[in-house]
Amino acid sequence: MAANFWASTQRLHWQFSRETLSDVRQQLEDEDRNLVQQYPLPDRRLLSIFFNQQLGKLGKKMNIRQQALATAQVYMRRFYSKVEIRRTNPYLVLATALYLACKMEECPQHIRVVVSEARQQWPEFIISDVSKLGECEFYLISEMNSQLIIHHPYRTLQEFQGTLNMAQDDVSLAWSIVNDHYLTDLPLLVPPHVIAVTAMFLALTLKPTQTGLQSAATSAAALSSASPTSKEPAGTSQGPPSTQQKKVQHLVSWLAEGEVDITACIECSQEIISLYDVWEQYNEKTCKEQIARFVKARGLDK
């Protein structure tokens, strides 16, 4: 339940294995094979980047807190695990997810405000009729089985910050890595505390200001040294330990004592690092055009 992730609907109904998630999506596409072939779309992560940027713009105009934006992103991902995106107007779904998330995160926005802001931002795709968004809200809640309470990694991150005595810089970086994980399938695959641990770990190992992003392999190797089977402490092969390496060692030994699923953390960090790789191919224009094609052709904006 709300305080207890282990008894939550998120854990019981919205955590999938990679295989299940891919099967579910395959099945969705199979049911609409013609549609899928007719309207190709970019990599899911690229689309997610696009949606996230659009959501960010919309949220900024209404001064919406990050937690509500994060909830909206999870709603989108859950919804599109059950509904073929080409059957929807993603802009309407985006605005609706934000509207609903704001209510659930206790920072409600009036439906008219959301619709008018959304219309200003996407005049070609949103009509000024609030009932469209109201209807879409029914759709969203129904597909999510009214399971609307979302556990985010931010809470764990805040708790760990004290426990591990992390520097503010590292926490901020971990925080933005958590923000980025919503662009991947991770919210549907791993528990939020695993994300938090991974984000902290990556924040200490990937210092974007220093040498650019390290490879997934290096980070994963350091992480796996935290697993009980490994005898070798992290960073031994890299010469004398720097402050950063000490921090990593501290985290690693802390992890080794705990019961955090290290394998999940490794997978998780690989997922996030490959997101940063894919990001280089991101092209806003392509996303926009490919979405516009099916929305316009199918009259989904009406």
Binding site: M1, A2, A7, S8, T9, Y99, L100, K103, M104, P108, I111, V130, S131, K132, L133, G134, E135, E137, F138, I141, N145, S146, Q147, L148, I149
Partner: peptide
């Protein structure tokens, strides 16, 4: 009847009742 957006109170009740047991 028109869709006018679900009240926050109804949203809370739906979400909490789904979660609690």
């Amino acid at each position: 009847i028109q869709y006018t957006g679900i009240s926050q109170s109804a949203c809370r009740e739906m979400a909490l009742c789904s979660e609690l047991s």
